[in-house]
């Protein structure tokens, strides 16, 4: 078995072991509530009311979990949030 195949098997079993990650968006003093709502609508395809509820959670609780999935998926979501200028992080679910 080549190194390439070993790596693939390892990463597959890693995914299968329910390695669940989350994307967290954090409050910051610069981003506008209206803008954050629109970003959540556009990127996460949330209806406006749901996007507003998440924005309020970020603003009032300081953070909100916006997505859950594999580490690779969360890297894509965090990259998108940073691209929009929002402060987002990823971590293992439950940490």
């Amino acid at each position: 078995m080549g190194t390439q195949e070993q790596t693939e098997v390892a990463s597959q079993s890693g995914t299968r072991l329910a390695d669940s990650w989350v994307t967290i968006v954090w409050n910051d003093p610069v981003n506008l509530m209206s803008y954050v709502t629109r970003v959540f609508q556009e990127y996460f395809a949330l209806p406006r009311s749901e996007a507003e509820a998440r924005m309020r959670e970020v603003h009032e609780q300081g953070r909100s979990v916006l997505s859950t999935g594999s580490r690779e998926q969360m890297e894509v979501d965090v990259q998108a949030m940073h691209s929009y200028g929002l402060w987002a992080t990823l971590q293992r679910s439950g940490e």
């Binding site: 610069v30 965090v78 940073h82 691209s83 200028g85 987002a88």
Partner: peptide, 30 residues
């Protein structure tokens, strides 16, 4: 650092990999 924030402040390995994989694309897009 405000434009390219740390994606995993509590996990150096995750943060470094994220930076390596994404920062050039994020910069170019901005």
């Amino acid at each position: 650092l405000r434009l390219l924030p740390n994606a995993a402040p509590d996990d150096r390995e995750v943060a470094d990999e994220f930076r390596r994989l994404t920062h050039q694309d994020i910069r170019d897009g901005k």
